[in-house]
Amino acid sequence: MNSHTDPIIKLTFDECWELLADEIVGRLALVVDAHPEIFPINYILQRRSIAFRTAGGTKLWSAASERPAALEIDGYDPGTEQAWSVVVRGDTELIEDQAERDAVDALHLEPWQPGDKNFYIRLTPRALTGRRFRVNKPDVWNTRATDRRRASFE
């Protein structure tokens, strides 16, 4: 079957959640000063929500005041030659309860970026969607050497 006729497969809630659990980095989309901004974050899953830490600043202010947010992760599996993406849409809130912070820390949420990340944020999903699709085979002569699809064919 060629890639033009391969369907886009909608992922189930459980498949989306498993992919979220397998990843540790995503892109958080927030509204900042009436326009969208995207921030890379490392996260953990806790109680069917996404938790991350941040310093004071734009991300914190937006997560605390502009409540709607989205998180996106994606990937490629050379073994199956399929790409996938998962999008979480929901609301953010500051985690202020110390017991809740301790529960997040117990799951080894460790910020990647240096500096104090003393604020804990939770993204509670209202919608969780994902899809998987077979990618086009790379053109061996024209596709960049760094394109992940090449690993499937070399």
Rank of each mutant, 00 (worst) to 15 (best):
G26S: 03
R122N: 00
Q46K: 14
D105V: 12
G115F: 00
P40K: 04
K10H: 08
G130V: 07
A64Y: 06
P111W: 12
E37Y: 14
L28R: 06
G90F: 07
G79Y: 06
V86K: 06
D97F: 05
V25C: 03
A69K: 03
K137T: 09
E18D: 08
T5C: 10
V135Y: 02
Q82P: 00
Y120D: 06
D14E: 14
Q46L: 15
V140Q: 14
N42I: 02
N136V: 09
V32Q: 11
Y43C: 01
S152C: 04
D97W: 05
E18Q: 11
E81T: 14
N42V: 01
W17D: 09
S49F: 01
H4P: 01
T129G: 09
P111T: 10
R132E: 00
L30K: 03
P40Y: 05
T12V: 08
Q46T: 14
E37M: 15
V88F: 05
A106C: 07
S152T: 09
I50W: 07
R144A: 10
A145P: 00
E37W: 14
D97M: 11
T92W: 08
A103N: 11
V25T: 10
V31N: 03
N42P: 00
W112L: 12
R134K: 11
G115R: 02
D102L: 13
I8A: 10
Q82C: 04
L109G: 13
N2E: 07
A83N: 08
P125T: 08
L45W: 05
G75Y: 01
T146A: 13
L19A: 04
V104I: 14
R27M: 15
P78E: 02
A55K: 07
A21S: 13
N142V: 05
R101Y: 05
W84H: 02
P138C: 01
A83I: 04
R67S: 11
A151C: 05
D97N: 12
D14K: 13
R144M: 05
H35D: 14
W84D: 02
Q46R: 15
P138S: 04
Y120P: 05
E96N: 14
R126L: 11
A83P: 04
T124N: 08
R122M: 02
